[in-house]
Design a protein around this nucleic acid. Structure first.
Length: 504
RNA sequence: CGGGGAGUAGCUCAGCUUGGUAGAGCGCCGGCUUUGGGAGCCGGAUGUCGCAGGUUCGAAUCCUGUCUCCCCGACCA
C-alpha cells in the first residue's frame, strides 16, 4: 500500500490519461452531452472564481472597466478584417434559425422539434469579440477626449475545436477579454505590455507558475494583430502552454470598423487598439504544472479551501469535544487573513473513515490538512500535513504556534511550488547553437525547450515546425539583448533568440 | 475534418463471433463489528445495454444511420 499512488496511471506512465484522472479524482469537471463542452463542477468552478476575482482586481487597478457585449455577432462584422476573419473561419458556430416547430411523428407519436424561421442574416457565436466590441467602440469614440477607452469583458466564447480536452481546449470556454482603444501607438503598446506583465505576475504570485514573457513570431501571431505578447508556461511533460496573450492590433481593426476620433489638431485619426485574454485553460495549466500522482496540488491562493480540519474521533465519549474543538479552531482561523482575505477553512465532520476523508482532500489538492484527535486535544497540539509534501508526512505543532505561523506556512507552500516549477523549467530549457543537436533533440521522448539564435524567415520557421512538431513558443523578451550569434538554420549573425518547444 | 478504438449499473469492464430481453469488481444504502485511518462481515438497491431506424417470433448481440468520448494527424486559448 505504501508505494501505491492515488492516481493511476501515473504521470510517467501516461500523462494525458493521468491529467484526466486528476480532473475526475478532484471532481473538477466532466464532459457533457454537448459536443466538446464541459460541465465545470463546484470545486473546479471555485478555482476559476478565485482566478477571476484576483485578475478582476488587477484589471480595475490598471484602470479598466467591465462591460458586456452580445454572444451573437452579425456575420457581416466578421467579414470586415480579412486576416481576422480567415483566422477564425474554420471554428465558428453559426446560428441560422430563430424558431423551432413541433412536429408529431404520426407513427411513433413522438414530438420532434424542427428548426424553422431561417434568418436572412446568420449570426456567429462569438469566437472572440474584437468585431462586436469594435462596432460599439466606433459609436462611443468621437474625440481624443474619449480616449483611452479601457474595457474588459468576462464571457464565454465558442470555437468549434476538432480535438477538445477538458479545460485545455473545449468548444465553449470561459475567459476574459480586454479591449482598449488609444490615441497613439506608444500608448497602445504600453497597454499591451502592461497587461502582459499583469498576466506574468498573476501566474507567478497566484498560480505559482513561472512564465516566460515573450513575443510571438509572425507565424504564431493572433489573426489581425501587429504584435502578440505571450506568457508561456512549462508543464510536467515538458510541453509548453500559452497561458495568456496580449495583442497590439495597430489600426487594423479601427480602420476596418471605423474606430476613429478627431485629434487635438482637429484631424480625423484611427485609434490604436489592443486586446488581451486568459481563459479557463489556466485551470488546465495549473493542474499540469503542480499536480502529482496522488492528485491535484493547489497553490494556496487559488485553493477553494486552504485548510481542511479532519476530526479524529476514535471514541464516542470524546467525539463531541473534538468536533467542538475543530469548529472553534476553524473559527479562529477564519479571523486570520492570507493576502488580505479571510482564510478559507473547512471542518470535515462527515461520518466517514478518517483515511477516506484524508485521501479525498489529498486528491482535491487542499494545501494544509489538520487532524485533531483526543491526544491532541489534551496536548493542545494539531497534526499538520502539507500537500506539497508526502501524503504521510505529518508534524505535531502546538495549536498557538500553528495559528501564529499559518500565513507563513501557506506562503511557504506557494514558494515551494513556485521553486519546484521554476527549477523544473530551468532544467528543461537548454541553449542550443548547433543545428544537428537541435534536430536530434526533438526525436527524444518528452523533449524540453531549446533556446536558439534565430534569423530564419516565416517559411523556414513553418517548415521546421512541421518537421519536428514544434513551434517557436516566443522570442523571450529577456534574451534579445545579448551578443550576436549565428542563426541555427541560416548561420546569419543575430541577436534574436527563439524558444522552441512542443505545445498544447 | 481524415485514420484507429470505444459507448452495457455512479466507476472500471465482462457478455456480442455462434440472437432467447443482463453480470462481476469497486462505489452506494442498511445492520453489526471496528476506528490516529482509504477496515471487516452480513444484507440490499441500482441498467428502455448511447440514440434512431431495420432484419427477426425474438436484438446488448446482426445491418444501416446518427451522436458522444478516447488515441494519432491537420486546426487551435
Amino acid at each position: 500500500m505504501a508505494d501505491k499512488t492515488a492516481i493511476s496511471p501515473t504521470r510517467s506512465e501516461d500523462f494525458p490519461e493521468w491529467y484526466q484522472q486528476i480532473i475526475r479524482a478532484a471532481d473538477l469537471a466532466e464532459n457533457s452531452e454537448t459536443r466538446g463542452c464541459m460541465v465545470i463542477k463546484p470545486w473546479g468552478f471555485a478555482i476559476w472564481e478565485l482566478i477571476q476575482s484576483d485578475l478582476d482586481a488587477r484589471f480595475k487597478a490598471t484602470g479598466h472597466q467591465n462591460a458586456y457585449f452580445p454572444l451573437l455577432i452579425p456575420l457581416a462584422y466578421l467579414e470586415k478584417e480579412a486576416d481576422h476573419a480567415e483566422g477564425f473561419a474554420t471554428e465558428c458556430a453559426v446560428v441560422t434559425h430563430h424558431r423551432l416547430e413541433a412536429e408529431k411523428d404520426p407513427e411513433t407519436g413522438k414530438t420532434r422539434m424542427i428548426p424553422s424561421g431561417k434568418l436572412t442574416e446568420p449570426y456567429v457565436i462569438r469566437p472572440t469579440s474584437e468585431t462586436i466590441i469594435g462596432a460599439a467602440f466606433s459609436r462611443w469614440i468621437e474625440s481624443y477626449r474619449d480616449l483611452p477607452l479601457l474595457i474588459n469583458q468576462w464571457a464565454n466564447v465558442m470555437r468549434w475545436e476538432m480535438r477538445p480536452r477538458l479545460f485545455l481546449r473545449t468548444a465553449e470556454f470561459l475567459w476574459q477579454e480586454g479591449h482598449t482603444a488609444h490615441e497613439t501607438v506608444a500608448e497602445a503598446i504600453l497597454e499591451t505590455k502592461t497587461m502582459h506583465q499583469v498576466y506574468h505576475d498573476f501566474l507567478r504570485d497566484i498560480l505559482a507558475i513561472p512564465a516566460v514573457m515573450g513575443e510571438k513570431t509572425e507565424a504564431e501571431r493572433f489573426p489581425g494583430a501587429e504584435m502578440t505578447l505571450t506568457v508561456e508556461a512549462m508543464v510536467q511533460d515538458k510541453k509548453a502552454i500559452q497561458a495568456g496573450t496580449s495583442h497590439y492590433l495597430g489600426q487594423n481593426f479601427s480602420e476596418a470598423q471605423d474606430i476613429s476620433f478627431v485629434d487635438r489638431n482637429n484631424k480625423k485619426q484611427f485609434a490604436h487598439t489592443t486586446s488581451w485574454g486568459v481563459s479557463t485553460r489556466l485551470v488546465g495549466t495549473l493542474i499540469m504544472a503542480h499536480s502529482d500522482d496522488d492528485g491535484l496540488v493547489l497553490p494556496p491562493r487559488v485553493a477553494p479551501q486552504q485548510i481542511v480540519i479532519i476530526p479524529v474521533t476514535p471514541k464516542p465519549d470524546t467525539r463531541n469535544a473534538i468536533i467542538d474543538a475543530c469548529n472553534a479552531l476553524a473559527n479562529t482561523l477564519r479571523t486570520h487573513t492570507f493576502h488580505g482575505q479571510p482564510l478559507r477553512v473547512h471542518v470535515d465532520s462527515r461520518d466517514l473513515g478518517g483515511g477516506q476523508k484524508k485521501w479525498e482532500w489529498v486528491k482535491k489538492g487542499v494545501p494544509i490538512r489538520l487532524e485533531i484527535g483526543p491526544r491532541d486535544l489534551e496536548s493542545r497540539k494539531v497534526c499538520v500535513s502539507r500537500r506539497d509534501q508526502a501524503h504521510n508526512d505529518k508534524t505535531f505543532v502546538n495549536r498557538e504556534e500553528f495559528l501564529q505561523q499559518v500565513q507563513e506556512t501557506l506562503d511557504s507552500i506557494h514558494q515551494n511550488l513556485l521553486a519546484r516549477t521554476s527549477s523544473f523549467r530551468e532544467h528543461n530549457t537548454q541553449p542550443c547553437s548547433s543545428f544537428d543537436a537541435f534536430e536530434q533533440h526533438w526525436s527524444r521522448p518528452n523533449p524540453g525547450w531549446l533556446l536558439t539564435p534565430w534569423a530564419g524567415s516565416r517559411q523556414e520557421e513553418e517548415k521546421l515546425s512541421k518537421e519536428h512538431k514544434i513551434t517557436i513558443r516566443c522570442l523571450p523578451l529577456a534574451e534579445q539583448k545579448g551578443d550576436e550569434a549565428p542563426c541555427i538554420l541560416t548561420g546569419k549573425a543575430t541577436k534574436q533568440r527563439a524558444l522552441w518547444g512542443r505545445s498544447y
